Simulated scan of single mutants.
Amino acid sequence: MNKPTMESKEAALDVSVEDRLCVVKFNRPHKKNAFRAKEYRALMATLDRAAGNPDVTVVAVTGEGDYFTSGNDFMENLQNMGVFFRNHQSSAEGTEVGEKKSSSSVNLFRDFISALINFPKPLVAVLNGPAVGMGVTMLPLFDVVYASDKATFHTPFVQLGLVAEGCSSYIFPRLMGMGKAAEVLLFGKKLTAEEASDRGLVTEVLPHSNLHQIWPRIREYAKLPLKTLLTVKEMMRAKDRETLIKVNKMEMEYLKKAARSEEALTGIMNMFAKKSKL
């Protein structure tokens, strides 16, 4: 088994390759596997290497600890998203700095979603626990999603003064129907694993105590002929790729505006206030 790269260690991302299967584990359990900029960059680099590695057939992504991922690490990303600059730096220079930082952060996320859209090999997600935010919205960009029955799925974007991303504004209504997608993206309805399966986000739900039993199956997938897998995935995904790239760009433009809004500042501050009371 390959040792994790220094890049992935620094980014709290464990990567190993064995028997043609690349396993990527989010390894920041003390922060519920929340993503910082370095995790996004490391995961994109890992996908790029896996795409070009003839010894990798399938990439499977999972989490360490209780959570799959709680989404963005807002504590680190607050200033990068620019939400403080609008109200706390009144100078033109402060506003310009805030806009540049916000654009840089959002552009990084845009590139991450693009990497998932364009990844040519089979992508499998194994949810060991709850997913929040981008941990939910990115799931339809995977080819197969397995989930523990302890997993939950929550997209509290509007509560935070933010907007849907990960192409979810386009994909979720197609998967669920407009009304059920609105419950999730507009009103932040938290889904159980069974509800997520019923709505098309999850391929199969397994008892948490038996989740480990999915790995032998995934390892069997990795033994399948690579060229044929690439061809069939391209046949399945090609017709939507251009649309998804356009949707990703559109969502990111809305996110740049939302991230610097009064509602985002209030929403994120309220989130931290609630956490401090726990």
Results as ranks from 00 to 15, higher is better:
G82V: 00
T192Q: 05
I117H: 01
A182R: 10
K150I: 01
R49F: 03
V145P: 07
D66Y: 10
V205E: 02
D66S: 14
S197C: 14
C167H: 05
D73N: 15
T155A: 14
K277D: 07
T155E: 13
I171F: 06
A45T: 13
K257F: 06
K277C: 04
K249F: 03
N107E: 15
H154D: 15
K256L: 05
D66A: 13
K121A: 07
V15T: 12
I218H: 08
L43M: 15
W215T: 09
G52S: 10
V202K: 11
A147V: 00
G98V: 04
M81P: 00
E96Q: 08
K233R: 15
G188D: 03
D19F: 04
D19H: 13
L265M: 13
L78K: 11
G177L: 05
S197A: 14
A264M: 12
A259L: 09
A115P: 01
P4C: 12
V232Y: 12
L229G: 09
F142V: 04
I268A: 08
K239Q: 11
K275C: 08
I245T: 07
K277L: 12
W215N: 02
V202N: 11
P225S: 03
S105L: 14
K180L: 09
Y67N: 03
L108R: 14
Q213I: 02
D19A: 12
K256A: 04
T95M: 09
Y221T: 01
L162S: 05
G52K: 11
I268V: 15
V163F: 06
A60P: 01
T155P: 00
T203N: 13
T95Q: 15
N87V: 05
N2E: 15
S103N: 13
E220L: 02
A34M: 08
T95Y: 10
T228S: 11
Y67F: 15
F112W: 13
F172G: 01
N53A: 15
G188M: 06
F172R: 11
R219M: 11
M138I: 14
P54L: 04
K227V: 02
E93F: 05
L201R: 14
V144C: 14
T5F: 02
K257S: 10
F35T: 01
H30P: 00
T152H: 03
M44L: 04
G135C: 11
R28T: 03
I268N: 07
G177T: 08
Y146H: 12
I117V: 13
I218Y: 01
V83A: 12
C167P: 01
G65N: 04
D55V: 00
F74V: 06
K249N: 09
M178K: 15
N72Y: 08
R174G: 08
L265T: 02
V145C: 02
I214L: 02
A37K: 14
E263G: 04
T5C: 01
K274D: 12
S276Q: 13
M138C: 13
F172Q: 06
A37S: 09
V58A: 07
I245V: 10
S91A: 04
K25L: 00
L78S: 10
L160Q: 11
L230R: 14
P122K: 07
E10V: 03
